[in-house]
Amino acid sequence: MQLLDQIMYLEQILDQLKDRYLTNERPENKRDPQFFQVVKERTNPIFEQIDEWYSSALLFIKKREVQVHPQQLQSTEENLKLLLLHSYYIDVRKKRYMELYQSVKYVFDLLKKDINKY
């Protein structure tokens, strides 16, 4: 999968996660083994996709003169994973969630601009 396709896919996932965060209630028991298993099954493929995106993006920015720096990429990877978990556990304030969301979207937009230049 090309980097642009990975970004587009993750943007769709991000929007779904945001909807989930905004519309679902907190789990009654965050330590419930069944809930943990459901979250694990649903999120593992997305975690793998985030890792693939990170590797592709890192290669892309190392080969070219771009606006995104490796540290921004690493922070974006971490923020994506936080958003993924917060969307299920709903354990962070809405303001913080939206800050993480906007930060990820911003870096994705920078990468898309850089991709379109080449």
Rank of each mutant, 00 (worst) to 15 (best):
Y106N: 13
I61C: 03
P45H: 09
L83Y: 00
Y88P: 00
N29G: 14
H86D: 04
D109C: 09
I90A: 05
T76N: 04
V66M: 04
L85W: 00
F60S: 03
K95F: 14
Y106A: 15
L80D: 00
L80F: 03
S87W: 00
V107E: 00
V38T: 08
R31M: 14
L100W: 01
L59R: 08
I50P: 00
P27M: 13
K30L: 13
Q72T: 09
F108M: 07
K30P: 09
V104A: 03
M98T: 11
L100R: 02
F60I: 06
E78A: 15
I50Y: 00
Y88Q: 03
F35C: 04
P27A: 15
D109Y: 12
V107W: 00
I46R: 00
V92H: 02
D32W: 11
R96P: 05
Y88K: 03
D91W: 02
W53F: 07
N44I: 10
L100Y: 04
K105G: 03
K62S: 13
I90M: 06
S75R: 06
K81A: 01
P27E: 11
L100G: 01
K95N: 15
N29T: 12
D109E: 11
Y97H: 05
T43M: 05
I46V: 04
Q67W: 05
K94E: 09
V68F: 02
Y54L: 05
P33G: 06
V66D: 01
H69Y: 14
F35G: 01
H69C: 09
R42V: 11
Q71V: 13
N29Q: 13
Q72E: 10
K81G: 00
Q67K: 12
R64Q: 10
A57P: 01
Q72V: 08
N79S: 15
L80Y: 00
Q72H: 08
S56A: 15
E25I: 11
Y54R: 04
D51K: 07
T43C: 07
I61L: 06
R64Y: 09
Q49R: 12
H86M: 07
K40G: 07
V39D: 05
D109T: 14
N24S: 15
Q67F: 09
V104G: 01
L73H: 03
Y97R: 02
N24A: 15
R93T: 10
V66K: 03
I90S: 04
E41G: 10
V104W: 00
E65S: 13
Y97M: 08
R26V: 14
S75W: 03
F36M: 11
E25G: 09
F36W: 05
R31P: 04
L83T: 01
L59C: 07
S87V: 01
Q49M: 13
Y88T: 02
F60M: 07
E99F: 12
K40W: 07
Q102G: 14
Y97A: 02
N29I: 10
H69G: 10
F36Q: 11
Y54S: 03
F47N: 03
V39L: 12
E41V: 10
L80N: 01
Y89I: 07
H86A: 08
S87P: 01
L59S: 09
S103K: 07
E48R: 12
F35Y: 08
K105R: 14
E78D: 09
P70Y: 10
D91F: 02
L59P: 01
L59Y: 05
E65D: 13
Y54F: 08
V66Q: 02
S103T: 08
K95V: 14
E28D: 14
F47R: 05
L110E: 06
N44V: 10
